[in-house]
Design a protein around this nucleic acid. Structure first.
Length: 194
DNA sequence: TTTAGGGTTATGA
DNA sequence: TCATAACCCTAAA
């Protein structure tokens, strides 16, 4: 039994909508996160839902529980509790399948390095990642992070440029976009000053 | 400031 | 299928 499903959370004080696309597998009672999208306007969220033809099916009781926990995790994170989302998620019957998302050696190396080494409150640069994984393909690293379907969970927001500038986020390179501000906001929540 | 390098993916023929 | 451009970048000129 397998459902493709979606749910969204709304955080009014942050002016933030989070849309989650996931599989719920009833036989294991687990949620597999596929995609997280951030929006600053309800209208944009609606547009995306329409465009992707997402359905909001009825949740069963177990599924509801997992989703509720996840929402609480996000709330805790946003309120400044120092929680490592990716670890907490695994404790809450939620999984991300990195090897399903990333198909090449290179991109898996990048992502695994992020997950294992760039913990809450830490910062790293694209070039540091390159050094650590033994590659000078800095742009390729950027490209891998750009395609990150789970920003915030897979902590690409903690990667900045070597010159100290913020770098892009969620496909946006322009510092003035709300996406870039979101990156900054996440870092500030984690207590990182730039 | 510009240029070339790097690995992957998206796009188009 | 193949090629070409684009990319959340860096180092060196």
């Amino acid at each position: 039994m397998k459902f493709l499903n979606a749910i969204f959370f709304e955080y009014n004080d942050l002016n933030l909508f989070i849309l989650l696309i996931y599989d719920y597998k009833a036989n294991t009672n687990k949620i597999f996160l596929k995609e997280i999208k951030f929006f600053n306007e309800r209208e944009m969220l609606n547009k995306y839902i329409k465009q992707k033809k997402l359905t909001f099916g009825k949740l069963n009781e177990n599924e509801k529980k997992i989703i509720k926990n996840l929402n609480e995790l996000f709330e805790d994170y946003f309120s400044g509790k120092k929680i490592d989302l990716i670890n907490k998620i695994n404790e809450n019957r939620i999984e991300i399948l990195i090897d399903n998302i990333y198909k090449t050696e290179f991109s898996r190396k990048v992502i695994k390095y992020l997950i294992n080494n760039i913990k809450y409150g830490k910062l790293a640069t694209y070039s540091e990642i390159g050094t650590q994984i033994g590659s000078k393909a800095y742009r390729a690293i950027g490209n891998t992070l750009r395609n990150n379907p789970l920003p915030l969970i897979i902590p690409c927001h903690r990667i900045i440029r070597k010159d100290g500038s913020l770098g892009g986020f969620m496909g946006e390179v322009n510092d003035k976009t709300w996406q870039a501000n979101l990156k900054l906001m996440f870092l500030r929540i984690e207590g990182v000053l730039i």
